[in-house]
Design a protein around this nucleic acid. Structure first.
Lengths: 275, 275
DNA sequence: TTGCTCCTCACGTCACGTGAGGTGGC
DNA sequence: TTGCTCCTCACGTCACGTGAGGTGGC
């Protein structure tokens, strides 16, 4: 007969609380060697201390229980390596994200009022599936093109009983201001990619880092917002990367006066010196 | 009469989900201008969009709702500055912590088996209130001193009906190996600081960074564990900082054979080159 | 018999997302 | 009348901590 440790003693030996040990039992992570069928009392063998210690080490490194379970089930160094590598990558990403948040807060502290004004913030944007219509048009034709495109896009969704996943927007080339026609895309976000037809195409706007500013006011004053982003970009020595997005948070369909319109401008950026 | 936005339209204007807006309402963070007493329908004024936008910006920076509420209630740049500064400091700490976890995982990846062997890990230790007895004793007198101290410490707790908060341990000077008597402290952790008496003193072991190794086996083989920490410390170019802690996770009172004893050694470390 | 240990719920954490089931408004 | 919007619960998330209320073992 080997010795059996009751949960309290095992708990002190491995520095894991009894409650947590019970949870590990229920989760199948660490099953006691013996469970008294009458009283429910758990009994652990001294040899189980090693396994508990592994769990504790990995938890101290914030490895999720589900992944610890994988490591323990496989008992294979390759699996362990893969799981830990994935976890490490996530930790590194998180560290970078949090450090960037701290930097942004530093910026806000330099001017706390900026939260309430025309503030440019950097943000990580998720990939977004959309339906879209594109055309090559002159700047003076932007508005007529959009007026034509949106009814078609919303009609496309209505015909398929798919609701829009957010407010409509448009893509513009951010790096050329010419008299030539440029590629403009009107889009409406959807929850999941849809098949297009001859006119409406399905796209996924890429995830990435963007500089964002939200402007309240009529469309003919949007240039103030562009000036703000431009100044900000110059100050940060960031280089832009791809077409910029305008999102029409409050637009004509709101029924509100033009002075209440809200437009978000999102400009993809990359680390590094401006060109 | 100003225009009122129903929750869905307001939601699209500020890019906050209706559910979240309802939660903000219930939390008192953002109360709709009008709530229909019969239907419960919420109505928002366009002027509330600005406030909602501030909330969204701060949430995007992971500022907790409770702190956003403080900022909004005070409407005072000094308060805003203080709250954001505190949040930024926490974010920086978290970034450092996560980055260190990633580094530790890198170390484990270099040798995945080390999780299950005599592995040294770095850890942040919380401050720990204890009751303690100290004496200046020769190395050969360590064991007799502890045998004398623990019954008194446990008796002290029993007399006050205070349960120990964890397994007992001892402090040893980590930086001197001499024939002279050295200061040794036996301790038992408690949940909250207690008043001592003439013999038993109340202390709080300081929080800080420690290198930790857990050894399984009899006390006369503990030197293997010390060798492991020593080698590890040398490899990391860390300098030690204060007395080291032995914690007796499984000891004589367990009733288990000596080969099952488990002892944790925690050595305070500081960044920087070893002396 | 008295403490101490152990048991099983149940609830709170934080900021939401995702239904279910039902009603209101054009 | 038909959709669409809005309403209020209720539950899940992740890994625990902290009781409440009751039983087992020396």
């Amino acid at each position: 007969m080997v010795e059996l440790l009751p949960i309290g003693q095992f708990s002190r030996a491995v520095l894991i609380s009894p409650k947590t040990l019970r949870d590990y039992h229920e989760a199948g992570l660490l099953t006691p060697a013996v469970v008294d069928p009458r009283t429910g009392y758990r009994g652990y063998r001294p040899t189980q201390i090693g396994e508990a210690a592994v769990i504790r080490e990995l938890r101290a490194l914030d490895v999720p229980l589900a992944e610890i379970a994988q490591v323990l089930a496989a008992r294979d160094p390759d699996v362990t390596r893969a799981v830990l590598a994935a976890h490490r990558d996530r930790m590194r990403e998180q560290a970078e994200r949090v450090a960037r948040i701290a930097d942004t807060l530093d910026g806000l502290l330099a001017d706390p009022g900026s939260v309430t004004r025309l503030a440019v913030v950097e943000r990580d944007r998720a990939a977004m599936p959309v339906i879209a219509m594109s055309a090559s048009v002159l700047e003076s034709e932007f508005a007529p093109f959009l007026d034509l495109a949106y009814p078609r896009l919303y009609g496309f969704l209505a015909a398929r009983s798919v609701p829009p996943a957010g407010p409509a927007g448009a893509l513009y080339p951010g790096d050329q201001f010419s008299d030539e026609p440029v590629e403009v895309t009107a889009f409406v976000p959807v929850d999941a990619p849809l098949d297009g037809d001859g006119e409406v195409e399905s796209r996924v706007l890429p995830a990435g880092r963007v500089a964002v500013v939200t402007f309240t006011g009529p469309y003919d004053e949007l240039t103030a917002a562009y000036r703000a982003v431009g100044t900000w970009l110059a100050g940060k020595h960031l280089t832009t990367d791809g077409p910029l997005t305008e999102t029409y948070l409050v637009g004509p369909d709101s029924g509100l006066p033009e002075s209440d319109y809200r437009t978000e401008i999102a400009w993809p950026v990359r680390e590094g010196e401006a060109a």
